[in-house]
Amino acid sequence: MTIEATTKSTVDAMVLQHEVEQFLYHEAALLDSHSYDEWVDLFTADAHYFMPLRRTMTRRQLHLEFTKPGEMAYFDEDKNWLEIRAKKFATGTSWAEDPPSRTRHLITNVRIVEDDGDELAVHSNFLLYRTRLKNDVDQWVGRREDRLRRVGTGLAIVKRFIYLDQTVLQSGNLSTFF
């Protein structure tokens, strides 16, 4: 391989990394500004959004730590359910978010682990910080496994699996998105 070719593939990788990161940051900004309709628009019609339960298991049985689709979960959504959730937040009577939570989605450790031309597998870590009312604080840390699809307008989310770093949830609800 020539030096030019090596440089070109590195630059291509950096451009792609940049595009993916900007997409995830844009998405986070939509969530933090409660622009849920626009956020749901980032998902494909066949999207699957899933947050399993997690259980404290011994190392030997760690393969059973997370529940799987078809088992109990916190979120197991198709695009229709995401739309209903967004609509519910917009009713004006969704008291869990009125006064609204203040959230900050910090997205880090973005890695493109697979690229087949049409779709990308992207892993990232997140810290979602939320405060409510005068002094309620929740923090959720975890990782996400996304599948992003190249569409006319850029990228869209086909699949998002969210793995929280908690077993007994320390918060009173999950009235937000990850």
């Binding site: 916190y74 979120f75 209903i84 008291w95 869990a96 918060s171 009173g172 609800n173 999950l174 009235s175």
Partner: peptide, 12 residues
């Protein structure tokens, strides 16, 4: 459940 569209509202 915590993300349930009924129970989201109860805890607070």
């Amino acid at each position: 459940g915590p993300a349930g569209m009924l129970e989201q509202e109860d805890g607070e």
